[in-house]
C-alpha cells in the first residue's frame, strides 16, 4: 500500500493523488486505505518514511563493507546506495507541504536528522583514522546535506550545467576543502 502511495504521489503530486488511485494500485478499496491512514498527509509521511528506511538499510549494509572513510564519503555523495531510492520528487513534495503542516515539518526534520547523523558518523570515523582534518562533524553534515539538497533542486530543474556527475564533483570539492583531504580522484 505504501509503495502504491509513493508511486501515485510521485506521478500526480499530493494534491491530485486520490485515495481511490492508491487503493486501485494496491488492489484494495478506498475505505481500507483510509482505515490505515487517516489522511493523505499521513500517507505521504508513511510512504516517505518507508522509502527512507529501505534506503538507509541498504546504505548501512554497503558502507560497512568499505574500510576507507574517504571512500565512504565518496559513496554517500555519489547518490548513496545503488538499489536504494533517494526520491527527489517525494522529498520536494515534503518540503512544500512542510511549510504549512507542522506534522510534516517534524517528519522532514526527523528524516533529515538521520541523514546528517550518517554524514557526521563518517566524519568522526575518518578523523579517528587520521583521514580527515579537524572539521566540526555536525556543522559539516549540515553544510554537505544542504549542498546536496540544493544541487538536487538544480538537477530537477533540468539545469543543463548541473548533471548528477557534476553535482558529485561539486560536492566532493566542498568536502575536500572542509575535511582537508583528497576525494575527487577517488570518485
Amino acid at each position: 500500500m505504501l509503495a502504491a502511495a509513493a508511486e501515485v504521489i510521485r506521478e500526480r503530486g499530493l494534491e491530485r493523488a486520490r485515495v481511490s488511485d492508491v487503493a486501485e494500485r494496491a488492489g484494495t478499496s478506498a475505505p481500507s486505505v483510509l482505515y490505515y491512514f487517516a489522511s493523505k498527509a499521513e500517507l505521504l509521511k508513511e510512504a516517505l518514511v518507508s522509502a527512507e528506511e529501505g534506503y538507509y538499510e541498504q546504505l548501512d549494509r554497503e558502507l560497512i563493507e568499505i574500510e576507507s572513510a574517504r571512500e565512504r564519503m565518496v559513496k554517500i555523495v555519489g547518490g548513496g546506495a545503488g538499489e536504494g531510492d533517494y526520491d527527489a520528487a517525494l522529498w520536494m513534495e515534503l518540503w512544500a507541504k512542510a511549510l504549512s503542516d507542522p506534522e510534516l515539518a517534524a517528519t522532514r526534520a526527523e528524516l533529515d536528522g538521520r541523514w546528517r547523523r550518517t554524514i557526521a558518523e563518517i566524519v568522526r570515523y575518518g578523523q579517528a583514522r587520521g583521514e580527515f582534518g579537524p572539521a566540526e562533524p555536525e556543522d559539516f553534515a549540515l553544510l554537505l546535506g544542504s549542498l546536496l539538497d540544493g544541487l538536487a533542486v538544480q538537477i530537477a530543474l533540468g539545469d543543463a550545467e548541473v548533471t548528477s556527475g557534476r553535482a558529485q564533483q561539486l560536492s566532493l570539492a566542498l568536502a575536500e576543502r572542509e575535511l582537508d583531504c583528497e576525494l575527487r580522484a577517488m570518485a
Binding site: L99, A105, R108, A109, D112, G150, V153, Q154
Partner: peptide, 21 residues
C-alpha cells in the same frame, strides 16, 4: 563552480529557514 556551490547551499539552507528549522 563556487557560485554553483554557494547557490546550492543557499537553496538547501534557505528551505530549512523557510520551514522554520
Amino acid at each position: 563552480e563556487l557560485a554553483d556551490r554557494a547557490l546550492a547551499l543557499c537553496d538547501g539552507l534557505g528551505v530549512r529557514v523557510l520551514i522554520g528549522e
